[in-house]
Design a protein around this nucleic acid. Structure first.
Length: 439
RNA sequence: CGGGGAGUGGCGCAGCCUGGUAGCGCAUCUGCUUUGGGAGCAGAGGGUCGCAGGUUCGAAUCCUGUCUCCCCGACCA
């Protein structure tokens, strides 16, 4: 993409009203704009990141489940069936349609997915199943803050498992645990599974996935031993129940809790040199809650012996839009965002130091075209701006690689390739630069 | 929901206390000079001061109401 043709409003000054780094940087680098308290429009740059994260989540979820898409607007009756309509409180946005029917903007989808499943699944032969969708949710938070990390409207992946019994449900839980570990790893961040409260959804088994960042919302305590465990298990098959259970024991067997569930007596048992504390941002949450919804909503299937069975369920959420902020919290510096390559809006930023120099422009065009042919996503700053402005903008936007082209280098036949994260610069010929960035 | 604060050109702010018809920086536009880490000079455009009432000869400024946004806390994917 050419910057001269982009809608990419970068602010020179840090906007008022933003407290945490990710919020400031997202506004400043032109990723989002607020439209109401806790509600944001995603501009091109932010939207690209959001889509990349969404796609990674989708690919990993497709290995354990099937994607569906449920509506944002739900009928209140569904929630009355599960008994949650009154329980949920003012966080739920309730609306009436023109006929006065009670509707709501879904804060989550357990009720709806249970009804959908109940209406069509009648036999034990059709279990287990895992369904997920990636959809916008709305929770009318009393006090939205921290930009997209605590918005009212947010994009979330939520998956739902249906199993014949508790043993099966646990396998589903383990599968999601592994899927989550792999998902976050692919995004270039470390998310530690921590024992959690099951909260208002209610449940028996529950873990939060927490990204460590100084500005995190909750305090976390964990045993450093978890850093040594290879949690993603490259070769591990989702069909290997025993190995999954072993992974679960290993991943959750060490002490790792947020301040909500922290208990000194267990903490004290962790060797002092391995005690790690810090702050964390919750980016995912997995629950096993048994028959809470299936029972309330009349979901049952015929068992092998003709008796009716009530399926055990679990739900598994990932805050997709929140992750955009969380990743920035975990990866930025004084100059701006530092995107992990997997979620960067573009891999390469191309900068011409002198837009009035024909050789410089020709070299930039050549590199831009070559990267395009190689399928490398590049943002080409072809504006007639001073070099410093462009370099500052590139650092702010945080693209993993920058190619800086100017007469000074071209005189010696080279361009500069800079790594945003390490700051390392290399002088390469145009061809070498193209080859390096296309790799 | 309790406590606090703010709404003034696109962005960031001053002016308000002590009413007299709106200003600064950045951005934008034009011209010239510049050009390897956020250029300089000259000129120009752009605001019914959140909204509604009220007081007054006169309101951005004082009073009342209202809406919105932000911060601390409680709450939360």
């Amino acid at each position: 993409m050419r910057l001269s043709q982009s809608f990419l409003p970068v602010l020179k000054e840090s906007p008022a009203g933003a407290e945490v780094a990710s919020h400031k940087l997202m506004l400043q680098a032109g990723l989002i704009r607020q439209t109401s308290s806790g509600i944001y429009a995603w501009l091109p740059l932010g939207n690209r990141v959001l889509r990349k994260i969404e796609q990674i989540v989708r690919e990993e979820q497709d290995r354990v489940g099937q994607e569906i898409l449920m509506p944002t607007i739900q009928p209140a009756d569904l929630w009355k069936e599960s008994g949650r309509y009154d329980a949920y409180g003012p966080e739920m946005l309730r609306i009436n349609d023109r006929h006065g029917r009670e509707m709501l903007y879904g804060p989550t989808n357990e009720d709806m997915v249970t009804a959908l499943f109940r209406d069509d699944v009648k036999s034990y032969r059709e279990l287990p199943r895992m369904l997920y969708h990636i959809q916008w949710k709305f929770r009318d938070e009393v006090r939205p803050r921290f930009g997209v990390m605590r918005g009212r409207e947010f994009l979330m992946k939520d998956a739902y498992s249906f199993d014949l019994d508790e043993a099966g449900a646990k396998i589903s839980y383990y599968r999601q645990l592994l899927a989550y570990l792999r998902t976050f790893r692919r995004m270039g961040i470390r998310a530690v599974p921590m024992q959690a409260d099951s909260g208002p959804i209610g449940g028996k088994l529950s873990h939060e996935f927490v990204v460590l960042a100084p500005s995190g919302e909750s305090e976390v305590f964990y045993d450093g031993k978890i850093e040594e465990v290879d949690l993603e298990r490259e070769g591990l098959s989702y069909d290997d129940a025993e190995a999954l259970e072993a992974l679960f024991r290993e991943a959750t067997g060490v002490y790792a809790r947020t301040d909500e569930t922290h208990e000194e007596r267990y903490w004290d048992a962790v060797p002092a040199e391995r005690q790690r504390t810090g702050r964390g941002i919750e980016v995912g949450h997995i629950f096993y809650f048994g028959i809470r919804y299936s029972e309330a909503m009349g979901l049952k299937v015929s068992g092998p012996d003709g008796t009716m069975l009530v399926p055990h369920m679990g739900s598994y959420g990932i805050g997709v839009s929140r992750l955009v902020g969380a990743i920035i919290e975990a990866s930025h510096d004084d100059n701006g965002i530092v995107w992990p390559e997997a979620v960067a809006p573009y891999k390469v930023g191309i900068v011409t130091m002198r837009a009035d120099d024909a050789d410089t422009v020709a070299a930039a065009e050549r590199i831009y075209a070559a990267l395009g042919e190689a399928g490398v996503e590049a943002l080409y700053d072809d504006r007639d701006e001073r070099g410093g402005v462009k370099l500052g903008g590139m650092d702010l936007m945080g693209l993993p690689w920058q190619v800086v082209i100017g007469p000074r280098g071209l005189k010696d036949g080279v361009v500069e390739v800079k790594n945003r994260k390490s700051g390392e610069r290399e002088q390469l010929t145009i061809e070498d630069a193209i080859a390096k960035l296309s790799a």
